[in-house]
Design a binder for these strands. Sequence first.
DNA 1: CTGAAAGCGCTTACAG
DNA 2: CTGAAAGCGCTTACAG
Lengths: 330, 330
Amino acid sequence: MQSKLPKIGEVAKIAGVSPATISRFFNNPSVVADETAIRIRAAVAEVGYVPNRNAGSLASSRSRIIAVLVPDIAQSIFNDTVEAMIEELSNDGNSVMISLTGSANEMLDRQIDAALSRRVDAILLTGVVTDAAIRQRLRNHPTTVIETWALPDDPIQIAIGFSHFAVGQATAQFIRDRGYRRPYLVVPQSSRAIERAEGFRSAWRDLGGEEPKLQPVSSPSHFGQGRVAFRGLVGLDPQPDVAICGSDWIAQGLIIEAHAAGIRVPDSLAVMGFGDLRLAGDMRPTITSIDIDGHEIARETIRVLQRLAAGEPVPARLPVGFRIIARESA
Amino acid sequence: MQSKLPKIGEVAKIAGVSPATISRFFNNPSVVADETAIRIRAAVAEVGYVPNRNAGSLASSRSRIIAVLVPDIAQSIFNDTVEAMIEELSNDGNSVMISLTGSANEMLDRQIDAALSRRVDAILLTGVVTDAAIRQRLRNHPTTVIETWALPDDPIQIAIGFSHFAVGQATAQFIRDRGYRRPYLVVPQSSRAIERAEGFRSAWRDLGGEEPKLQPVSSPSHFGQGRVAFRGLVGLDPQPDVAICGSDWIAQGLIIEAHAAGIRVPDSLAVMGFGDLRLAGDMRPTITSIDIDGHEIARETIRVLQRLAAGEPVPARLPVGFRIIARESA
DNA sequence: CTGAAAGCGCTTACAG
DNA sequence: CTGAAAGCGCTTACAG
């Protein structure tokens, strides 16, 4: 165990340059002469120098830390997006600080403090902040705040995502085109899923359909809710012909329940999911779902951060698309 | 937008104390007089002061940042543990920096650099580092390194987890006790799953069983591999009577494939998973699995960090248990 | 219980 | 392309 970490001055001495040049070597290599760079590389390797980025953050007033706030991670529909975020942010030279807000945002205030205390370059929110006081606080703060997976009319600062209402509308059109008539909506009680349900109902009404049946379930959603969803469906008269589920997990669970009860999917009941998780394509029958491109959201986020760092203007609302993926189940 | 963040001196001035006392108020409140604390609280609220922890890290040479390195997050058997880690670490006053290593640890060296550059108080590894050079590098570094979900004979520094070999052995005993005779092992090609398979084979041999059939699948495992696993099983003669799957996802997928082929679980084929994910209890039939207590691993990790911070000695290997959860599928 | 002062390890205008 | 020097915002022995 080496007991003391080397610091910039020691590397500088060995390389025969000043600390400033070592700093430039790491942060702005193109300004350092090639021959100098060679000597520095050797010195860095010799002592195993790793720059102290906390000191760097303080001196430059740019932390290169990004806070990512997510409701949960154990089984979240955001996980693909979050994974892509972490990857892209890391590759771009940032440290990623992660916080779990819980689905009810109970802890949000404390976690925002934690992020601000690290002077993060940006706070990335996955999901919507509904608390007005918190929205106001973030709006007034100089730190960049980016909401993803949503496209509110009035973002805190910048939103990158899609309209859940529009997803609901597109789903209604799709379902109608496929010839279904009696939709059954399984709606996790999150603001996003509720908004999709609203969009569905609105478009469905416009298409001349009857008011769809609704089945609320708790949020975040999970596989086991397929059971609740199926139970809520069996008693109904007339019997729905398509179950539109708030997540692929619910859809998967519902299909298994239906099969256990002798109801074939899609022959006797069509089922649709949301999120286009990997399992949607692997399930029997494969599940018709809606794909959100998490990688695109992540890449767009990086682009926004880079433009902001360069002092360029950025629009407040950046739409990324969604796609209905038609498979066997509906 | 307030353009300048308040700093410790301004709060001190308003509260009528020195910056040192403000610092103590945040970091060691018990030494501050009650009446002083009241004035400080008011001043902090008045200007909306949030201490700069990057500056604090630099000054105190304790960053209160913990790095958590995981293979992935999209669909990982570690997710429960990682979630518990993040929660516990945050509640204990740390910032959590997360990095994705990929299952092959390709990026590990760079990510360790990233963690060290933040002078993290500890690096938490989920999964095993197999690269000898990296193990050596970490062993020589003064930063605390904790391996979780494993209990190697010779930890890098500290390991908190369980023996995968022992899990395999216990599984063999359980399967034997249940009266199964022809096991079929579905083994994701990760060092951990392979070690469980070794443990199983070793104990199974000792119990007088014949060499089990093996079916390798890629790692990380996922639902869709149930199909591969089932296909590998149908041709076998004699037909296995129990499929022991490297994860609950594989078990779930295999059950669905079996049912689609008219083979009932557990009547014609028993199935066992690993990880005791929520879906294991929700599946039809419910899945017999092995529970790893992620919360206990997380709590133990916190305890270790606290002891190290207090200068107390900590054992190199800290076992946390595992439990076989018997359900319907096996 | 509190304050004055040195120091943590970098970065960055500025000057050359 | 490079260096000298000031400064980033805290913490912590030390002294009282």
